[in-house]
Amino acid sequence: MKTIRLSLTTEETVPIEAERISPDQMAGLELDQIKCLEAWLGNRRITLDALFSIQVEGEAQGPESTTIVLEGDFSRVKRVGERMTAGSVIAKGNLGMHAGNNMIGGDIHIMGDAGDWLGREMRGGKIVVDGDAGNYVGAGYRGERCGMRGGDIVIAGSAGAFLGEHLCGGSIRVEGNCGDFPGAANQGGSIFIGGSTHLPGAEMVKGSIIVGGHAHMLPSFVRMEDVEMEGERFVKFSGDLVENGKGEILVAETV
């Protein structure tokens, strides 16, 4: 097992793009090599050791047995865990935008808050956020037909707007509230929102959205029979009929 610990040594407000902070990129490298990995501070191409103090313990066979621990507030560090296939990233505090972009496998655990585009175009693996997450959790890139296709995202707090836009698979669970338009153009993923939201499932054609709190529904969903789940009563809707959709939304309370 190999553990790589990073903590920020700069107080710059200019963001850092560091897609090399990923078990796949770091597993096979010695400390000196890790220090020399490329990162970007705004428009400056620099090395990781110019921004972080880095410690390595243990050995790894591959990314599966590699854990990256981010100490402190990483909310200005973007693209951590991008395209990772295995292993773990643990952020002890916040983590910036695009964490787990195109993630294929492994785990990311964010103990603080996550920035926007968490798990964008994710295909597999698991992301857990103890705090809140920003907009576009599990969404796609602009203009694409597909967002997240697989894997799981669990958010203990609340999430921003456009959660799971163009979702094509996988699941997203938000214990708290969610901003407007969760699950827009959903094509087969599942979303659970413990709290409340506004206009879920716009243009969804498949998949499901469960809202434990209240939601304002679109007029293009048809109301079905009420259902009971784990002792609670939900109103069931089917749609979005503007797209002849057959998605399913369960809402505890409509407003």
Partner: peptide, 10 residues
């Protein structure tokens, strides 16, 4: 606006 347009599309 959004819901009104959705209704019109319906």
């Amino acid at each position: 606006d959004y819901e009104v347009i959705s209704a019109m599309r319906m």
